[in-house]
Amino acid sequence: MLIIAVQWVIVALCATINLCEGNEMETGNLPLSVNSQNVPLMTRQRFAQLIGLPEGVLNAQADKGYWPMVKIGKYSFVNIALLNKQLLEREFKL
């Protein structure tokens, strides 16, 4: 299951790179023009939208420790900076 989630992250990161080059895609009323390399933290809701997972699935995975999280006060955020670092360090096999 984690492999599938990582694949979704890669797809989402590729999509955000293309979106930041001037192409803007919308999901509902929320534009997805976020460059994830410049955003160190992101809410669970926004991250779920960007990678295309239902919010409940992302919350369950985050609670199990599948996603790097940072708690600030009563809010928890997905640590995008650490996730990017982990994905770049990971060895992928085709």
Rank of each mutant, 00 (worst) to 15 (best):
A81I: 04
G28A: 08
L13M: 14
N29S: 10
V57W: 05
E24L: 01
K74C: 04
R44S: 04
P40A: 10
L2M: 06
Q49N: 12
A62T: 11
L94P: 15
G28W: 03
G73V: 03
S76H: 04
L19W: 05
F92Q: 04
R90Y: 04
G28V: 03
Q7H: 12
F77K: 05
L94I: 08
T27N: 04
V11Y: 09
S76Q: 11
A60M: 05
E91C: 02
N29P: 12
L87M: 15
R46N: 09
I72N: 07
R90L: 09
V39L: 11
V34H: 08
G65L: 10
V11E: 15
V11H: 10
A12E: 11
E55S: 07
P31I: 11
P31Q: 10
C20I: 09
W8M: 13
G65K: 02
Q45E: 14
E91Y: 01
I80L: 13
L58E: 07
K85R: 15
A81G: 03
G28Q: 05
F47K: 00
V6K: 12
Q61N: 10
L94W: 07
I72Y: 02
L82F: 00
N59C: 06
L87Y: 02
I17Q: 15
I51P: 14
V9R: 09
L88S: 12
R46Q: 11
L94G: 15
K93E: 14
I10L: 15
L58I: 03
A15L: 08
P31L: 12
S33P: 00
C20Y: 06
T43H: 04
A5K: 00
G52F: 00
N38I: 08
K74T: 08
Q37M: 11
L58M: 07
